Computed example of a mutant assay.
Amino acid sequence: MAMAAELHGSDTSSPSYSVTSRIARVDIIRDMAAAKVNWRALDGDDFLHTPYQRFELLDAWQQSIGKHEGAVPLIVVAYDVNSRPLVLLPLVSSRENGAKVARFMGGKHPTFNMALWRRDFAETISSTELDALITAIRMQPDGVDVLAFAQQPKQWRNVANPLASLAAQPSTNPCPMMTMVPGCKPEERVSTSTRRRLRNKERKLQALPGYRYFVATTDDDINRLLDSFFVIKPQRMALSKLPDIFSDPATKAFVRDACLAKLPSSGRAIELHALECDAELISIFACVADGERFSTMFNTYTISENARYSPGLILLRYMIDHFGDLGYSSLDFGVGSDEYKMTFCKDDEPLTDAFIPLTARGKFAALGMSSLTHAKRLVKHNPALMQMAQLLRNALSR
């Protein structure tokens, strides 16, 4: 049935237009607090989103890194005729090389970027309804030139991701992942041979006073672990001749605020898992989790002699068993083909990028973004080009 889809911004109203759609209204919200109620309404088993799109995590990012970088919230919410949210796109807009670009919130920190969908709507959305969402953004008076929707999963919880079909191309990297059968034996998650190898290494660590694996649940434990993390991480990055991406005050604020942020049900927006002894933090992994998938975000490990015993791999084995015992069915360690990921992950989660022009200027910006992504992917998947890029990066970092 045809109905008017009214578009509203925070400072002005756009003209209404008619579509054949379940979408009765589209709002553009410019303030995180104003979007919170709608965000909360799209949480639960009847809705579809990754744990990276939780309000608590993205609000922590926007209040720190987002504001520091000049990103302005552009939150798109579509409603049905009963004013119930159908989908929420957690976007920010900013000026990049002369063009106004809208991206998913979170910058480089989420592995997966995705809208928050009512599950039945995502399963049956039409091209007309997708067009209505894009048109709502195009009609805004502040003039977004291009939508840059990077690192989108093709599907989530066995439902195709509608936005991943729009002008999509493969992302620079896929995401290594591991599937688990809920209720399976530990040896079916991590092989007996790998367990034996890690157990032999761990014996050295088990001799340390106070050695333990644990999940930080109190503010005091979270702050204590992060204090150690921010000391160890720059030293570890320097040893690898890599820039310390956590040195920026806004990034530190985001990490701490998101780790401390409590979810409405239970747990934190970012969980911290650690191996430690009385003398030091040995290894730490941060992750997000949603009951079915856990995804790691950042990590580090000691620079002491205890680093020889593969504490990162030992910690990951503990985490896999922890979440496996809770009935989780999959996990990932973020994009990239690091060797430690390949120890556990035998499959890939394919990711797509979509660069959608909304204006004439946006056509040039979208073409440039698409070409750059294609070139990066070509380098990443060509060993000779990758070696040249690595040599260049090392030379520039000296």
Rank of each mutant, 00 (worst) to 15 (best):
E6D: 14
L7I: 06
H8R: 15
G9E: 08
S10K: 06
D11H: 10
T12E: 14
T12G: 14
S13Q: 10
S18C: 12
S18L: 15
T20W: 05
S21E: 05
I23M: 04
A24E: 10
R25Q: 15
D27T: 03
I28K: 02
I29T: 02
D31M: 04
M32T: 08
A33H: 12
A34H: 03
A35F: 00
K36E: 00
K36Y: 00
N38A: 12
W39I: 04
W39K: 07
A41E: 14
G44C: 11
D46G: 09
F47A: 10
F47D: 05
L48F: 10
L48A: 06
T50E: 08
P51A: 13
P51S: 09
Y52S: 12
F55N: 00
F55Y: 15
L58R: 03
D59A: 05
D59G: 01
A60I: 06
W61R: 04
Q62E: 08
Q63Y: 07
Q63G: 07
I65G: 04
H68I: 03
E69M: 13
A71L: 08
P73C: 04
P73N: 05
I75G: 00
I75Q: 01
V76H: 06
V77I: 11
A78Q: 13
S83Q: 11
P85L: 02
V87N: 03
